[in-house]
Design a protein around this nucleic acid. Structure first.
Length: 306
DNA sequence: AAGAGCGGCAACCGCATTGCT
DNA sequence: AAGCAATGCGGTTGCCGCTCT
């Protein structure tokens, strides 16, 4: 198609929407719905193409839209989901109620990249420290991964969703990975890098137990999922997106004295990101992220490089 | 004060996908 | 099965406001 059929009409207006146009579109959609977007402009008295109307409604005018700054929890969720599915903005947006793909895409392309570059610049001249990363809300392992993603543009979802291994594991325990590692000095970034060479993936979300009581059987995640699959999110009582959880044996393995990377390997896991740990120090006494979140610890997985 | 540079973001473009005939 | 139209999606553009010099 050279031209969009919906935009073939003459004198279609382009550019920013005026308040009057917005009002017309809102009035029409709220009374008639939007069964066929190509019919909307004419019926609503707008000199726009249907596609433009749809975009305007979905991204800015629909009543359940959520505007304003992204919360730390949303930001973390975006980064985590982006690591899992790549630039599939609509997919990511589906896990952030009220947010649009366009908004998330813009956010990623400006704010998050800027943060990462800023951190990377610092990193090149100085050995990274926990403080440097936590000033932006990222741990070193997150930054490492994101840098890699930005540089290589590797289509991560290909490896993630083609893996025969269990893709998702969940830990409802209040301490999760606390104490994993035998020397007491391991940093999350090092653990992350060490685990990058493995060939399978796992998603492990360690959620706050009080907020996320639901349990889903692990088997429901381990096979037959289509390429669009992500575990379902549920709403906590604070309005945050949270993932349903399933107990796993992290603590048990820790008690057996395994290093985390060994444990990861034994579980056919590839890599992890570590989010907030509001319970206090973890991983050998290191606080791995600023305790700014009340979301609980969230472990986000990334597929290993092949 | 003014203009150049930059970044954020709304909107567009083109391709992919879906659904209908 | 093929063709077409509508919709969905991600990449990109370009305007506008802010900051810097």
């Amino acid at each position: 198609m050279g031209h969009h059929s919906c935009c073939n009409q003459q004198k279609v207006k382009r550019g920013l929407w005026s308040p009057e146009e917005d009002e017309k579109l809102i009035r029409y959609i709220t009374t008639h719905g939007y069964g066929c977007w190509s019919e909307v402009p004419e019926k609503a008295g707008l000199q726009r193409c249907g596609k433009s109307c749809r975009l305007r409604w979905i991204n800015y005018l629909r009543p359940d839209i959520r505007r304003g700054r992204f919360s730390p929890e949303e930001e973390k969720l975006i980064i985590s989901l982006h690591g899992a599915v790549g630039n599939r903005w609509a997919h990511i947006a589906s896990h952030l109620p009220g947010r649009t793909d366009n908004e998330i895409k813009n956010y990623w392309n400006s704010w998050i990249k800027k943060k990462i570059r800023k951190t990377t610049t610092t990193q090149t001249s100085n050995k990274p420290t926990t403080d440097q990363h936590s000033q932006f809300g990222y741990t070193s392992n997150q930054v490492d991964f994101l840098n890699q993603d930005l540089v290589t543009k590797r289509p991560l979802q290909d490896t993630l969703f083609s893996s025969p291994s269990p893709l998702f594991m969940f830990d409802t325990g209040p301490v999760g990975l606390e104490g994993i590692g035998t020397d007491g000095n391991e940093r999350p970034g090092e653990l992350f890098q060490e685990s990058m060479g493995l060939n399978s993936e796992v998603v492990a979300w360690h959620m706050n137990q009080q907020e996320v009581p639901a349990v889903l059987p692990l088997a429901s995640f381990s096979g037959g999922m289509d390429s669009n699959y992500l575990p379902p999110l549920i709403e906590s009582n604070e309005g945050m997106a949270a993932m349903e959880v399933q107990p796993c044996s992290i603590n048990g393995e820790r008690e057996m004295g395994l290093e985390l990377n060994e444990w990861v390997e034994s579980q056919q896991c590839a890599s992890f990101l570590f989010w907030d740990q509001p319970e206090g120090p973890v991983l050998g006494g290191e606080e791995i992220a600023p305790a700014s979140s009340n979301m609980g610890t969230m472990l986000s997985p990334y597929p290993s490089s092949l």
